[in-house]
Design a protein around this nucleic acid. Structure first.
Lengths: 114, 114
DNA sequence: GTAACAGTTTAATAATTGTTTAACAATTTA
DNA sequence: TAAATTGTTAAACAATTATTAAACTGTTAC
């Protein structure tokens, strides 16, 4: 993932309403949710809703899908993982025992179980 | 981790210079790095350097430690993991096979190895 | 004590971002 | 076809953020 895209993704999530939207979509899984449902849950105006979806979409964090007159949005999990990998890349120079990222924990556990 | 703190952390990282600073510190591990070294590496003015360190510090992402006339900064790995956990919490309603967060991958691998 | 070094703080300016209102598509239902 | 529903777009305004220059606080070395 390119630095520029990571910055965009972080900026998109660095806003309370959008962070809430995103978490709802992460929880919802690949099928996503109808735009209006999310707006209702978070008490957003239609304009605010569209604005925030646009920012999240432009950052590559969510995807849009139209069904009839409803618009579904779903989290882009690849982008989420790309961002996390970028942040934790080469953590503690690669020594997992020190920094305990989710990844490092995994490789520790793998080693333990061997 | 509280939503407010997560937003602050994301906002702190959503800026190219600070993202670079943070990644250098993540790579450096718990001992951290001298402020001036980082500033030199990223060609920041002293004022810009202090400004960005303050934002990262206020977000809880880094810690400060003075040694003589040098100031060391180090990543706060707990905050990093807290932020990541918050973002990926309840991913796909808990079905790891779908969303493949680092955590979900871990538990899949654990299951396989059992 | 004075000078040099390492960082911080303050104030001013320029740029970006979020919210609101209103008007505008596109799709379905009557 | 007309009305209702779902969502988008555009313009205007208020608030936040990044950068720069200059003055300031400690710490070490001479």
């Amino acid at each position: 993932m390119k630095p520029d895209q990571v910055v965009k993704a972080l900026a998109a999530l660095a806003q309370p309403t959008r962070l809430s939207i995103y978490r709802l979509l992460v929880k919802a899984g690949p099928e996503g949710k109808v735009a209006g449902q999310i707006a209702a849950a978070l008490k957003m105006s239609p304009a605010a809703m569209s604005f925030h979806f646009r920012i999240l979409g432009h950052a590559g964090l969510i995807q849009k899908r139209q069904e009839g007159r409803f618009v579904y949005y779903a989290a882009n999990f690849g982008a989420m993982n790309g961002m996390i990998d970028y942040l934790t890349e080469n953590c503690c120079g690669g020594d997992g025992a020190l920094c305990m990222t989710p990844k490092a924990k995994k490789s520790n556990q793998t080693r333990k179980l061997k």
